[in-house]
């Protein structure tokens, strides 16, 4: 059996129970785009933003990490995040995707596709950020 590295959050492991904003419980691998959209609609603080993957490159600090550059929201703000290559992002209409889906599947048993430039990921911002 495999153990996820400590820096990868436990809720991405297949079978993890996720509570939606309306109280419904779902397994992480069963989540759909609509679950995130509907939960954000209920939320008073959070809203969903579209974050388009603009660039994916290896990290300078470790081969286990990748730097993903996103274009966030309608203003296309540039945001870069450094994540473990197996870290899953949720792509609109597609589901969980990571820089190294084989590793995600191996470590987390989470069904996952390859994250690619042009993919539109679900991200969050504050509703009243002005």
């Amino acid at each position: 059996s495999t153990v996820a590295p400590p820096s990868l959050p436990p809720y991405f492991i297949k079978g993890s129970i996720i509570q939606l904003a309306d109280g419904e419980l779902k397994r992480v691998e069963d989540l759909k785009t609509e679950d995130f959209i509907q939960s954000a609609e209920i939320s008073s603080e959070l809203k969903i933003d579209s974050s388009t993957v603009e660039r994916i490159e290896g990290s300078h600090t470790s081969p286990n990490f990748a730097v993903v550059q996103f274009s966030v929201g309608e203003h296309r703000a540039q945001v870069s995040v450094e994540v473990l290559v197996e870290y899953p992002f949720f792509v609109f209409g597609q589901g969980w995707s990571s820089c190294c889906p084989d590793r995600t599947t191996q470590l987390l048993e989470l069904p996952c596709t390859k994250l690619s430039v042009g993919d539109v990921c679900i991200s969050l911002t504050l509703k009243n950020l002005r």
Partner: peptide, 19 residues
């Protein structure tokens, strides 16, 4: 069994406010 809130699975990407 731990239950995790939905928003913990989504990266919080706050665009920098330039204005």
């Amino acid at each position: 069994v731990p239950v995790f809130p939905w928003h913990s699975l989504v990266p919080f990407l706050a665009p920098t406010q330039s204005d």
